[in-house]
Simulated scan of single mutants.
Amino acid sequence: MKKCNNCGSMMNKDAKFCTDCGTAFEGVTPSHSADIKVETSSASNNTQTSQVVQNVSNAVKSVEYDKVAQGYWNYFLTTLKKPSSSFLVTDRTNGWIQFVLLAFLNSLVSVFILAGIPGSETGIGMFFKFFFVQLVINVAGIGILFVFKNLIQKVNAPFNVVTSQYGGLLSFNIVLLLIVLISSLISPIAMISIIMIGLILIGIVNVIAFNMYLLNGKNNSKLDNFYVTVLANAVVLIIIAIIARIGMEMMIDMLPYMFNQYLY
């Protein structure tokens, strides 16, 4: 038997609490189970809080990605419809998206065209080689424009802004590259005429965009007319050249027949 220190009642030797007053005997930790419950509850709350934070973080990232995608899409459509509108662009992101996309499409086109040539090296390694070279060429072009704008023309244009403005002038190349890519996927040999027209126009757009950016001033509507005029003339000349070549091939094929008819 043991005596309760609080009320003096006698309890069994194994008793942990006084049944009269509820006082715990020495060595007993009545709050142990409660502590475990508190700790379990705390851990559960922490887990729930962590999950909520993760969900919020994912939602924020999703919103940010959607915002960036929507911003680029608006940038692409606006500069495609009116190239000179790129001179009003002040963001520092869309230009890099544009040039990465251009390098990606250029690399895909190059790999698929090579795939149609027997014995040519293709594969993911070749794709990354093309991609790296294309990015270097793009950055070099941006660097030249940045130097001319800031040091010679005395225009205070940050490098990233130059990237977005110059990139906007190349939006038409995205469309051309998609056409060339689809053609090369169908058949690089059968669609060679369309592929050649597309590649030549891509080169012409690069030249026009580079010079337009150097020439832009107060009245850029004239540059839009210049852009469209040069492209239209280039398309006409290329189509005429292709028709002339097809006509010459047909004539060459018909020459033996005509020669035989004349002799006999």
Results as ranks from 00 to 15, higher is better:
residue 4 C to V: 06
residue 4 C to F: 06
residue 10 M to E: 03
residue 15 A to T: 02
residue 17 F to V: 05
residue 18 C to Y: 00
residue 27 G to K: 04
residue 27 G to M: 02
residue 32 H to M: 14
residue 34 A to R: 07
residue 38 V to K: 15
residue 39 E to L: 06
residue 41 S to L: 12
residue 41 S to D: 12
residue 48 Q to E: 07
residue 50 S to A: 14
residue 50 S to V: 04
residue 56 V to A: 08
residue 62 S to W: 06
residue 63 V to L: 13
residue 63 V to C: 06
residue 64 E to Y: 11
residue 65 Y to R: 14
residue 65 Y to H: 14
residue 68 V to H: 14
residue 69 A to L: 15
residue 72 Y to L: 07
residue 72 Y to S: 06
residue 73 W to D: 02
residue 78 T to C: 02
residue 79 T to S: 13
residue 80 L to K: 12
residue 81 K to A: 12
residue 81 K to D: 04
residue 84 S to C: 09
residue 87 F to K: 06
residue 88 L to G: 12
residue 94 N to R: 09
residue 97 I to C: 09
residue 97 I to G: 11
residue 97 I to P: 11
residue 98 Q to T: 15
residue 100 V to L: 15
residue 100 V to I: 15
residue 106 N to E: 09
residue 108 L to Y: 12
residue 111 V to R: 13
residue 115 A to K: 15
residue 118 P to C: 10
residue 125 G to Y: 10
residue 126 M to N: 10
residue 130 F to Y: 13
residue 130 F to T: 06
residue 131 F to P: 08
residue 134 Q to W: 13
residue 137 I to D: 12
residue 140 A to Q: 04
residue 140 A to T: 14
residue 142 I to W: 06
residue 147 V to F: 15
residue 151 L to T: 04
residue 152 I to W: 10
residue 155 V to L: 13
residue 155 V to Y: 09
residue 159 F to K: 08
residue 160 N to V: 00
residue 161 V to N: 02
residue 166 Y to R: 02
residue 169 L to N: 02
residue 171 S to R: 00
residue 184 S to N: 08
residue 191 M to K: 05
residue 193 S to H: 00
residue 197 I to W: 01
residue 198 G to W: 07
residue 200 I to Y: 01
residue 200 I to C: 03
residue 200 I to V: 08
residue 205 V to W: 03
residue 208 I to M: 07
residue 212 M to T: 03
residue 212 M to Y: 05
residue 213 Y to G: 10
residue 214 L to V: 08
residue 219 N to C: 03
residue 220 N to P: 12
residue 223 L to N: 11
residue 225 N to A: 09
residue 226 F to E: 06
residue 227 Y to I: 07
residue 227 Y to S: 11
residue 227 Y to G: 08
residue 228 V to I: 15
residue 229 T to S: 13
residue 238 I to R: 04
residue 246 I to C: 01
residue 247 G to E: 09
residue 252 I to F: 02
residue 253 D to V: 13
residue 253 D to C: 05
residue 254 M to D: 14
residue 261 Q to I: 08
residue 263 L to I: 14
